[in-house]
Design a protein around this nucleic acid. Structure first.
Lengths: 64, 64
DNA sequence: TCTTTAAGACACATATATATTGCATATGTT
DNA sequence: AACATATGCAATATATATGTGTCTTAAAGA
């Protein structure tokens, strides 16, 4: 469950809290997703991708 | 929550049941996802995409 | 016609994503 | 030193994805 959320977020200089608020979840949820520890819903993945101006593939596809 | 799973699956002539078995869920789950009624997990989306030889974007990105 | 297979629909049970709260630590600022 | 902000971590609560079982309908083959 690795992904590119953290690196993408940091490049854009926004905090977990800001991203969380913009996509409508809590900071903890963003933290866990970045940590790769669990398995977000598709809707949330899409919301995060749009907020970071990326696509699903950019953030979540074959990140080894 | 619309997506291209159903059309892609049918083009490849496989049944809901076959796809379900290959990705490790039940036929009902595949049915609901194709119907667009709900919000699958990222892991399941990835499993479906790989099984259908597509990417996340192919199946789930901006399908209006 | 009879049988089999694919698929839609529904009720209920269970697993897990997400929320909420709180505490700890590190860093930057005054 | 004191304070604020960002992040990690953990416990418990709630919402919902998914499983299980069943019934129904439509289509295909014998």
């Amino acid at each position: 469950m690795k992904n590119n959320v953290k690196i993408t977020r940091i490049k854009q200089s926004i905090t977990q809290q800001q991203l969380a608020k913009r996509v409508g979840v809590t900071r903890q949820t963003i933290g866990l997703i970045e940590k790769g520890e669990y398995n977000p819903s598709l809707q949330l993945c899409i919301a995060i991708a749009k907020e970071l101006n990326k696509t699903l593939d950019d953030l979540f596809w074959e990140v080894e």
